[in-house]
Design a protein around this nucleic acid. Sequence first.
DNA 1: TGTATTTTCTTTGTCGACACAAAAATCGGG
DNA 2: CCCGATTTTTGTGTCGACAAAGAAAATACA
Lengths: 234, 234
Amino acid sequence: MTDKPGTLPAERRRGEGVKLVYDILRDEILDLVLPPGSPIDEIQLAERLSMSRTPIREALVRLAGEGLVTTLPNRSTVVSNIDFLNLHTFFDALTLMYRVTSRLAAQYHRPADLEQIRLRQVEFAGAVAAEDALAMIATNRDFHAAIAEAGHNPYYLSLFCRLLDEGRRILRLYYSSFEDRLPPRYAAEHDDLIAAIEARDVEAADRLATAHADQIVRQIQAMIARDRRQSITL
Amino acid sequence: MTDKPGTLPAERRRGEGVKLVYDILRDEILDLVLPPGSPIDEIQLAERLSMSRTPIREALVRLAGEGLVTTLPNRSTVVSNIDFLNLHTFFDALTLMYRVTSRLAAQYHRPADLEQIRLRQVEFAGAVAAEDALAMIATNRDFHAAIAEAGHNPYYLSLFCRLLDEGRRILRLYYSSFEDRLPPRYAAEHDDLIAAIEARDVEAADRLATAHADQIVRQIQAMIARDRRQSITL
DNA sequence: TGTATTTTCTTTGTCGACACAAAAATCGGG
DNA sequence: CCCGATTTTTGTGTCGACAAAGAAAATACA
């Protein structure tokens, strides 16, 4: 159990502690540094970040609220499992949110929103050019989150972000084992979607979002199928 | 500042404290006993429930995660406001969730689910018969939550419950000032919806859910309009 | 040797206390 | 009488400590 680096206990202002723990844990969970099922020891974390258990507990409660960790009463809290048996519910909700947020963005976006979306797309294109699969996952998430922001519906936004994060976890699982490549087609699809939103063409945005969602769903399903075959081979 | 009754500090088992505080605050917020904007004093609550501030803070963090309270850094946490300026985003999301959950229920419900739904409908009918508007609000919420359960999609379920709770808060606001009546038509609409779900008729369930959602949205809008007129008259 | 029971040990849930930040009250100058 | 600076007050954010609840280990017994 060597102490993990990069977390030197520099001076912290009052109130920053919780956010720090929350962000660290969240990143480590989404990047599978903490794989599903791994227990989270409050004391260990407290020592590692050189702070009391109180702010750590608060961060854990927040994460539990978002479903990223599961708290077993009087027992350790663990990183939530990915429910592969019910992935279809995830795909269903993800596709719907892709569609709804894209539609709303086409209807209600303002200039500043479009600027943000374009910025995210540039970042995504950069990740594609660098063939950095992990960066692609992250920037793709931010791109679609920006579209959801442009739709200005906080209810959809929060559900969509939750779904995108869960998707990041799933994708990360397969990229870490397969070193796969996202089809470069994605970047072009993003450009088309931006154009539809800018033209305020709701139906076109819907179509493109649906197609994009189907792409991603199919990709994940293909990965799982491939994984299954491999498991059987072993 | 008299001590509120009904909260005698009986013996409590370890781990129950947080849930107790959470449930109490949640109910008081949704029933507008704690109106939007009212500050929540941790110390006062701690004394009232005769427990430490720690479990109370944890409950507040959870409530903040669901958007029911807002935490001002280094300042008190207050009950979240109802954003009347952006009610359309609420209506939009609510309608969509009505439809989606009803569709999924028609597709995926199991016998036990239908039983639960019927149970809730009986409760709702009882509230209608008793002309108890507040009970109608609560049982109507539970009825639709049961339908969402029958759809077996946890993502939709959690968003829908959040929306239904917010709706309960809004309706409660108007019923407390107007002593209004829910149209008895609602009960019949519920029966039709149950029939469509049982027949696994997805399209009919969708139609009925849409109509039902429109009903409720129109009712709320009418209340607001009436309220506006009254405000102007003053 | 396998199983039931007791003991130890780890880790959480709760507590009281203190430090700190922001608002409210107080004070002094114009 | 009003306005800005200073002090007080109020209430949060964090801490270390303790107690309870399980799990693991140790022990006893068949």
